[in-house]
């Protein structure tokens, strides 16, 4: 589903944020991406989502090159940044319809999905209010709903658990699993190692812009814990 080949990103001024990263995410997989602050996780996710340009390498989503055919690649993708700023002048329902229109979602499908995810995240009653009046958690939920209603083949999430209450986090994990059962893939970054260990089929650890380890979670963790592996790779243990 997602193929990252020799991806590098150099910022103006010469700082290399990511260096020669290659990884593959297969359909039906939840792929965790972990690393310390500034390791290059967000830079990678933003490049995959087509939000940010990059200097070297190729990224293809469902066979579409994000540089050469960005519209087709984005059509099957949903991206959620760590702190999603949503149009405050829109009502929640207007925002969902706006996104649904951009992705050409049929009216019947969007109504059904908005009801499903809106009710599950207990946000349906608030959809008539301007987003400017939403709390941080409500915005996070709205952004999540806008991602789920697209039924993406690849869902990219940057620190998705930040700002969500425990029940919403639990729900989200369930929906991620459901999405993967349908053949989609999830690629997400997190600092919550326990969640990554329990949820992910595959994990990649990045340090100073370079991939230091990746593979199936069981193989990577072995008899230890992800926290131990992570700290050892980071040289802190």
């Amino acid at each position: 589903m997602l193929h990252i080949e020799h991806y590098s990103k150099t910022y103006p001024g010469g700082k290399k944020a990511v260096d020669d990263l290659s990884l593959h995410v297969r359909p039906g997989e939840i792929y965790g991406f972990i690393g310390h602050n500034g390791a290059g996780k967000t830079t990678t996710l933003r490049a995959v989502a087509g939000v940010m340009d990059f200097t070297e390498g190729t990224i293809t989503i469902d066979g579409h090159d994000i540089k050469k055919d960005p519209v087709a690649a984005k059509k099957v993708t949903a991206f959620l940044p760590d702190n999603p700023d949503l149009y405050e002048f829109m009502k929640g329902i207007d925002y969902l319809n706006f996104i649904a229109d951009l992705y050409d979602l049929p009216a019947e499908q969007r109504t059904k999905d908005i009801a499903k995810y809106g009710d599950a995240f207990e946000l349906t009653g608030n959809l008539g209010s301007p987003i400017g009046s939403y709390s941080h958690g409500m915005r996070q939920k709205l952004a999540l709903i806008s991602a789920f209603i697209r039924r993406p083949k690849l869902l990219i999430l940057d620190e998705p658990f930040v700002g969500l209450d425990p029940s919403a986090s639990h729900l989200m994990k369930g929906y991620l699993a459901e999405l993967c059962q349908g053949g989609s893939a999830v690629f997400f970054s997190t600092h919550v190692l326990e969640v990554a260990e329990k949820l992910c089929h595959q994990i990649a650890i990045i340090k100073d812009g370079r991939l230091v380890k990746c593979g199936p979670t069981e193989e990577l963790v072995g008899d230890s814990s992800l926290e131990d592996v992570f700290l050892e790779l980071e040289g802190e243990k």
């Binding site: 329902i93 229109d101 049929p106 009216a107 908005i114 809106g118 009653g125």
Partner: peptide
């Protein structure tokens, strides 16, 4: 500005 909690979802329409 607190969000109201009285919205009833009805059938949505699609546009381009």
């Amino acid at each position: 500005r607190s969000a109201r909690n009285d919205y009833k979802l009805s059938a949505q329409t699609a546009s381009g």
